[in-house]
Design a protein around this nucleic acid. Structure first.
Lengths: 148, 148
DNA sequence: CTACAAGCTCAACTTAACTTGAGGTCAAGC
DNA sequence: GCTTGACCTCAAGTTAAGTTGAGCTTGTAG
């Protein structure tokens, strides 16, 4: 089996399970890179598969594309990222995940009580307490006004 | 303490920490209800505060407004919901939360390994396995509403 | 050498959950 | 009676993460 040197969008789409349009989109967002053939078609190096896989996993963990892109900035520009490079990323995300899990647990443990009881005032209820809130590195800012 | 009978939108907004526009929105979505004064202004009964608080908590847990609205359907139409009524809801959501926590844990435990290793193919990697996905089978909510 | 599948670009549409704005009404203090 | 602030409605805008479609070009199998 001769290693295929370069992949077309279609091939990447098939192998990564991501739509072609999504790949275009990721590229526009700077998450993946391609070079073009003389006929202007995209060609990808193999490590794009890893990148895409990581994008998907990170998304499932609740990390936004913007944050993923930011994290990818830490990857080496010139060379293909090594296992070390990737590990750095995953460690950071693991920490985030740990926090999210902890916060969800807190929420879960308080949910029944707090719905059942009379403590739903914003200032007193632990669930409604700003300090306890799930952290918001997300870039959205849509819901900012709501938190008082 | 004289019980304040009815609340204006502004008062509900202030006390619940939710914008007036959001309250209008919730009402349009059937999540809360109001009646009108002769001058066409909204007036809310006190238990709207609990509803709003629960909406926000549920959202943070990753439940969409549509799902919250659906859950609210189970609440009694005529009378103010009792603690029992609310408990029924919270129990169901607690189960969902438990599942989400379990999935996040799975993800966390696999993250470092799977990013570092070569198993990122869609068919083989546990993280990439469809059955293990976090994705809500529900309508549209792709990510946990964990940010803000 | 020619079909036609696969690719390309760009714009517009989608969903969730709101916010913002325009243009107009209502209620209370002075 | 007037001014001011809280309300009202309805339309349009916003963000994330893509998808869909139109119109046009490439590349490859037969």
């Amino acid at each position: 089996m001769t290693p295929v040197r370069e992949l077309t969008v279609g091939q990447v789409a098939m192998r990564s399970g991501v739509a072609v349009s999504a790949l275009h989109f990721y590229e526009a967002r700077g998450l993946i890179r391609s070079h073009r053939t003389s006929g202007n078609q995209r060609r990808y190096s193999r490590d794009v598969l890893r990148r895409v896989a990581i994008i998907r996993v990170a998304q499932e963990v609740g990390i936004s594309l913007a944050d993923i892109a930011a994290a990818f900035q830490s990857l080496p520009e010139g060379r293909t990222p090594t296992r070390e490079d990737w590990n750095l990323l995953s460690t950071a995300w693991r920490d985030e995940l740990d926090q999210k899990i902890a916060q969800l647990k807190k929420l879960r443990d308080g949910l029944t009580d707090c719905i059942g009881c009379g403590c739903m005032s914003i200032d007193k209820c632990p669930l409604r307490n700003k300090e306890d809130r799930l952290s918001a590195q997300g870039s959205g800012a849509r819901r900012l006004l709501v938190e008082r």
